[in-house]
């Protein structure tokens, strides 16, 4: 089982900090204009920060992926544990992509599409750009080998 790049924590923790900061800022501004004590929004933002950071760290710790003999297997989730098995035969196409934020920390993700209604896209974040491309190529090759004519 492969883990994600540890650097992904920077991204996720950063995201938690930013959203807590926004909530805190808006709350603080609202509190100063009303007669709500200023401590309230600060406390809420603090709580959000702790929970968000904890969630991000646990999320990193629980993320695992693996290419098995005939499927791509993922394990993830903090509050809800999710395990997905994507049969290679079902893969429609594979993307590797880098968002602006991901580029900041030098990471990329690979996205796998199936025709399914629910697992329509399976995204593996926190890969190095080279790994993401390699994974894409490998999945593509495996999907072709697996004879994708049964894709639906």
């Amino acid at each position: 089982m492969n883990a994600l790049q540890p650097r992904i924590r920077i991204l996720w923790v950063g995201r938690a900090i930013i959203s807590a900061g926004i909530v805190g800022g808006v709350g603080y501004a609202a509190a100063t204009y009303t007669d709500v004590p200023v401590e309230w929004p600060i406390a809420i933002a603090g709580l959000l920060l702790v929970v968000g950071v904890l969630h991000a760290l646990l999320r990193y710790r629980n993320w695992r992926y693996e290419i098995r003999e005939d499927s791509l297997y993922l394990e993830r989730g903090v509050l809800t544990e999710v395990r997905t098995a994507v049969p290679l035969v079902r893969i429609q196409h594979v993307d590797s992509r880098r968002s602006a934020l991901e580029r900041l920390v030098g990471l990329a993700s690979t996205v796998v599409y199936t025709a399914g209604s629910r697992g329509a896209d399976v995204r593996i974040p926190g890969l190095t750009p080279d790994d993401a491309s390699a994974l894409r190529e490998r999945l593509k090759r495996l999907a072709i080998e697996a004879d994708g004519e049964d894709a639906v």
Binding site: T80, E81, A85, P87
Partner: peptide
């Protein structure tokens, strides 16, 4: 079986408490 696209198993925090999924 041949129509299955992906198989997903989930266990929410509550389901874990009851040891189900």
């Amino acid at each position: 079986y041949y129509r299955i696209q992906t198989v997903i198993d989930t266990r929410t925090i509550f389901q874990r408490r009851w040891d189900v999924g």
